[in-house]
Structure formats: structure tokens, C-alpha cells
């Protein structure tokens, strides 16, 4: 036994705080407005890519392995959609991942879920960032029934 303590606490490195809280810079409102403006230029290209990606995903479901790969592709669409403020589309794709994790869903059911969610997400993307969540949810419920 020694008297040496097992745990040491250090003052955190203040560098980041000192650099960032200088009083200048941007507020959250300003930062988000600037980011939205910066992303506006590439939003159209994303929407075209995402719709094509969703269509491609839907056509490929032939096995469990494909389903797993498709889940990765879906996650890519979802994450990018959210950053482009396509919240309704991102939510639909996120919801699909949850639906597919149902162990009782067979391949036919999964195909149907994929198709329904892909169509609903494509519809949301076509509507733009202001797409209504409620409308998209209703569309999805109809397609997935």
C-alpha cells in the first residue's frame, strides 16, 4: 500500500474556451442562417441524389444481407436530409429503420415497408424543407397499410 492517490483531477485545458468566448463571432441564430445559406447551393443536388438512392434501395431487397446494407444506405440519406432541413424526410427514413428492426417482419413485409417509406420520403423531398410532417405521416400510414 502507498499513500499515492489512485485518481488525479486536473484543471481542464482552457484553450478552446479562451479562443471561442472572446466576445466576437456569431450567435446560434446567425450561424444557422449562414449555414442554411451555404447549404442552399447544394440542396437540389442532394434531393436528386436522395430520391435516386431511395429508389435504388427499394429495388435491391432480396435478402437479409441486402436489407442490412440498405439500412446503412438509408442512414446516409437520413443524416444528410436532416442537415439540409428535410426533417420530414429524415424522420420517415429514421422510422423505417425502427420498423425494419421488428423481428416478426418477414421479407415480404420488409419489402412493403421499404417501398412505402421510400415513396413517402421521396414525396417529402419533392415538397422541400417545409414538407408537413402530418401529411407525410398520413401518406406513409396509407402506403404501409
Amino acid at each position: 500500500m502507498t499513500d499515492q492517490p489512485n485518481t488525479l483531477l486536473y484543471d481542464p485545458d482552457p484553450t478552446l474556451r479562451r479562443l471561442v468566448l472572446s466576445g466576437g463571432g456569431v450567435t446560434e441564430t446567425e450561424a444557422v442562417a449562414r449555414a442554411d445559406a451555404a447549404l442552399a447551393a447544394s440542396r437540389g443536388a442532394f434531393e436528386a441524389w436522395a430520391v435516386g438512392r431511395l429508389a435504388g434501395i427499394e429495388a435491391k431487397i432480396t435478402s437479409e444481407e441486402h436489407a442490412a446494407r440498405n439500412a446503412i444506405a438509408l442512414a446516409q440519406v437520413r443524416d444528410e436530409a436532416m442537415l439540409y432541413r428535410h426533417e420530414a424526410a429524415a424522420r420517415v427514413v429514421d422510422h423505417l429503420n425502427v420498423a425494419l428492426s421488428d423481428p416478426n417482419a418477414d421479407m415480404a413485409r420488409r419489402k412493403k415497408l421499404f417501398r412505402a417509406h421510400a415513396l413517402a420520403a421521396a414525396h417529402a423531398l419533392a415538397q422541400g424543407p417545409r414538407a408537413s410532417r402530418t401529411d407525410i405521416d398520413q401518406l406513409l400510414a396509407t402506403l404501409a397499410a
Partner: peptide, 22 residues
Amino acid sequence: KPFGVGDLFRQITRVVEFVRPF
């Protein structure tokens, strides 16, 4: 995930403000 640009900015703010001993 997924997160929006506002979430990203708020996360940076949180890390800067909520400083803990190491």
C-alpha cells in the same frame, strides 16, 4: 443522429460552456 445545423452549433456551445475537470 440525425442532427441539424442548429444542433451542431448548440453542441459546440455546450462543450465550451460545460467544462469539467479531467
